[in-house]
């Protein structure tokens, strides 16, 4: 089966459909995908757009050579061991080039400021890959803090103490009631000015505080879905509240919150694209820059979308694995 449902409901799909039927439907699914693909392709043919996928590659892996230019007038000496020395006329310390794959000057040549001396072949990360890395960095760090914030807010929300309960309620309502984009601006321009935050810290703060509010509600509903008898049993054994929470309630709640948590963490990855508005070069901003440089608009955005999809599907796959591992006690 192409996409096998993880939990087949015992009463569905047993009587009516046998295996043969399933194959037919799966084949139909593939066929439909092909038709849609073809439709998209032929539609794009009509709009007079030249697809140039090869233009994208340099922005993923940059293989342009690293070049060395003369900063001043001077004279080149090629040494016996292959290194190059440039003595400058104005008395600047001599420039020593240790490795060169291509040489653009000859031994003893006089050069002027700005002349290209040599270059080294190299492969470095392109703008898109660097943006992808930034997105991963933003997401992972924000994810870590969002879970901590969410857990604390959830525990405060179900606490008996009105002080912590009200604070948590206020936090969740304010954060969920305002757009993330506005929050990013407020954190960056207002808090950023007061506390002197750099843009990366501001971005992380906005993302984790935002996602934390949603995670708090997910964890709270997870905790409240555990039958009260569990807490009673734990307390009747002499455990105090924190111990009972840590070893009895939260492990069970964690398992139940995994599916909605996966959705929220995927949202976090996608929401991280919004921090590009405060000039963090994440995947989306990198995409915008590449479009400006290459004019390969369609290719760039398809590539960016595919890279996001790689991130989100990896995460969702990982969480499915955890879910499966935890289901052994069911």
């Amino acid at each position: 089966m192409l996409f096998a449902p993880r939990y087949l409901h015992p009463y569905l799909g047993i009587k009516m459909q046998n295996k043969k039927h399933n194959v037919v439907w799966q084949a139909l699914f593939v066929l439909t995908l092909i038709i849609i693909g073809f439709a998209v392709y032929s539609a794009s043919q009509k709009i007079d757009y030249t697809w140039q996928w090869n233009r994208i590659l340099p922005y993923i892996i940059d293989s342009s050579p690293a070049e060395t230019f003369a900063e001043n007038d001077g004279q080149v000496t090629i040494n016996e061991n292959g290194t190059i020395t440039v003595d400058f006329d104005n008395g600047d310390p001599a420039l020593l080039i240790k490795k060169a794959d291509h040489l653009f000057v000859s031994d003893g040549a006089f050069i002027f400021a700005g002349d290209k001396i040599s270059s080294v072949n190299q492969k470095s990360m392109g703008v898109l890959l660097e943006g992808l890395l930034m997105t991963i960095k933003l997401s992972v760090i924000s994810l870590f803090f969002a879970i901590i914030i969410g857990l604390i807010a959830a525990l405060m929300r179900i606490s008996q103490n009105p002080l912590s309960r009200n604070f948590s309620f206020l936090y969740i309502e304010i954060i969920r009631g305002t757009p993330l984009l506005v929050q990013i601006f407020i954190v960056y321009f207002f808090l950023g000015t007061i506390f002197d935050l750099d843009r990366f810290t501001a971005g992380i703060t906005a993302l984790s505080v935002f996602t934390g509010a949603y995670i708090a509600e997910i964890i709270r509903s997870g905790i409240q879905s555990i039958p009260p008898g569990q807490m009673e049993a734990a307390r009747s054994l002499g455990m105090n509240y924190p111990t009972a929470m840590t070893y009895v309630i939260l492990p069970q709640a964690f398992k139940r919150t995994l599916p909605p948590m996966a959705g929220q963490l995927i949202n976090l990855i996608k929401d991280s694209s919004l921090v590009s508005v405060i000039s963090i070069t994440d995947l989306t901003k990198a995409g915008r820059e590449v479009v400006a440089g290459s004019f390969a608009t369609f290719e760039v955005w398809f590539t960016v979308a595919a890279l996001y999809l790689v991130l989100t599907s990896t995460l969702s796959f990982a969480i499915q694995r955890i879910e499966k591992r935890l289901s052994n006690s069911d």
Binding site: G229, Q230, L237, Q252, S329
Partner: peptide, 13 residues
């Protein structure tokens, strides 16, 4: 003080 409940309340995990 040990307690045994009607619904067992074992820790399922």
């Amino acid at each position: 003080v040990g307690m045994v409940f009607q619904s067992f309340n074992l820790f399922p995990h």
